[in-house]
Design a protein around this nucleic acid. Structure first.
Length: 403
RNA sequence: GUGGGAUUAGCUCAGUUGGUUAGAGCACUGGUUUGUGGUGCCGGGGGUCGCGGGUUCGAAUCCCGUAUCCCACCCCA
């Protein structure tokens, strides 16, 4: 038997219904905020991700589905959504056009990782990207939107925010931190030694307790923000407070993708295991320029749909549509015709097999139909159809032509 | 990539120190005189015990390999 690849899942009902419901809800809310749908290719040139996500990241370093295609192009399956949107934005020359551009997207992403709960090799994200607004007010708006989506789905969460600084203050801070790490080289764990070389900021969220004790003494990013970054962060906090959004400042919140600067945020859930981040995002003011576009401030986020699925509180399913059956084979043409008429406006389930009265009612109940319609010998002779409302328990026999 | 735990019917799981035709509940399906469902009663189908080797007179059970899932690390959505 051929089976699906490791870490790649099929999605049937009811998960597929939860998925649809999520997309529908998130889409509705994104549109209310003025975002428009955008669809990007799943396959892109490898260089795009190397330059945007960053070669120091695990995603690019060891998790990409990368290969050479028949035209000898070095390509890979997208590991995340932002790079493609930014590439398209520049290619369409929207950077030169100026103004504000807001997009939402959703679809599969691919990362070659060891699967576990909440971590798949093919997974789905819903994301939004906003271009052209430098103000932190947009960051706050995005967080409000995320709160609206999660609230609409009945999902509980904790919001963590941080500022990663910008090109003025981040390099200075990174140097200070590296000096600190150099001075304590013998005390840090192997992982942190590796991080020091590849992405030093990452040592801050090391889970090793002796490292954590040491880093309590380390220079703090929060205290090293330049004036602009600090002002923005203070404004973000007060905007969230004005909107009655609870948050926690987590100075150890570090995004794994190189392109983030200033605002970084993450929504986490304690109900889904170790892979607890359900949404994450932040500002990436330098990325458009970095990908050869005209400098354009931008901010965005992505949600991991599979991680949300089991948390979604679905609206109650109500009885819906018609179940139509006949008690003898002569009635089959009649119910087929009746179904054709009724399907113009309602969901219709037709039972092809002749059954007795009781079994038809059972069948109607099983498919959760609102109405059970039956044509027996009597109805067939009279040109009528018997209908019962299974919810109100009311029944009637009407002329088949008025059905 | 590292470490650990699982894998028996469509699903959730039993299966005694290796010993005849591997079980249960739910689900599915048929019947219960042609007339009232979701909640009665009776019956039926469905398993190369993840896959491949090995030990044995005999393997779901013991050994080795492998695949997948789960948990943690790592990383991130």
């Amino acid at each position: 038997m051929i089976q699906s690849l490791r870490g790649m899942n099929d999605m049937f009902s009811p998960d597929a219904e939860r998925y649809e419901y999520f997309i529908e809800t998130a889409t509705t809310i994104a549109k209310r905020y003025g975002f428009t749908f955008f669809e990007a290719p799943i396959l892109e040139e490898t260089a795009l991700f190397k330059r945007s996500v960053g070669e120091s990241s695990d995603i690019v370093g060891k998790e990409m589905y990368q290969f050479i295609d028949k035209g000898e192009n070095d390509v890979c399956l997208r590991p995340e959504g932002t790079a493609g949107v930014v590439r398209a934005f520049i290619q369409k020359k929207m950077d030169k056009q100026g103004g504000i551009h807001r997009f939402f997207y959703h679809g599969p992403m691919f990362r070659y990782e060891r699967p576990q709960k909440g971590r798949l090799r093919q997974f789905h994200q819903f994301g939004i990207e906003s271009f052209g607004v430098a103000s932190v007010v947009e960051d706050a708006t995005l967080i409000m939107m995320l709160v609206d989506i999660l609230d609409a789905l009945g999902i509980g969460y904790k919001l963590e925010i941080n500022s990663l600084g910008d090109q003025n203050c981040m390099p200075d801070y990174r140097n200070k931190l590296v000096s600190f790490l150099d001075a304590h080289e013998s005390e840090i764990c192997e992982d942190c030694k590796r991080r020091k070389a590849s992405n030093p900021i990452r040592v801050l969220d090391c889970k090793n307790s002796s490292c954590q004790a040491l880093y309590a003494e380390a220079p703090k990013l929060m205290q090293n923000l330049c004036e602009g970054c600090d002002t923005d962060f203070q404004q973000l906090k007060s905007l969230l407070e004005d909107s009655k959004i609870d948050y926690e400042v987590n100075t150890h919140l570090v995004r794994g993708l190189d392109y983030y600067s200033k605002t970084a945020f993450e929504f986490v859930s304690d109900e889904i295991g170790a892979q607890s981040a359900i949404a994450g995002g932040g500002r990436y003011d330098r990325l458009v320029e970095f990908l050869d576009g005209k400098a354009t401030p931008a901010v965005g986020f992505a949600m991991g749909i599979e991680r949300l699925l089991e948390l979604i509180k679905m609206p109650e399913t109500k009885r819906e549509g018609y179940y139509i059956g006949t008690m003898d084979d002569e009635g089959l043409p009649l119910i087929m015709k009746a179904a054709q008429v009724k399907r113009k406006s309602d969901k219709v389930t037709v039972e092809y097999k002749s059954k007795n009265f009781k079994n038809h009612l059972k069948g109607a109940d099983k498919v959760n139909a609102r109405f059970c319609a039956i044509i027996g010998e009597n109805e067939r002779n009279d040109g009528t159809i018997w209908i019962k409302d299974l919810e109100l328990k009311e029944e009637k026999t009407i002329d088949l032509n008025t059905f």
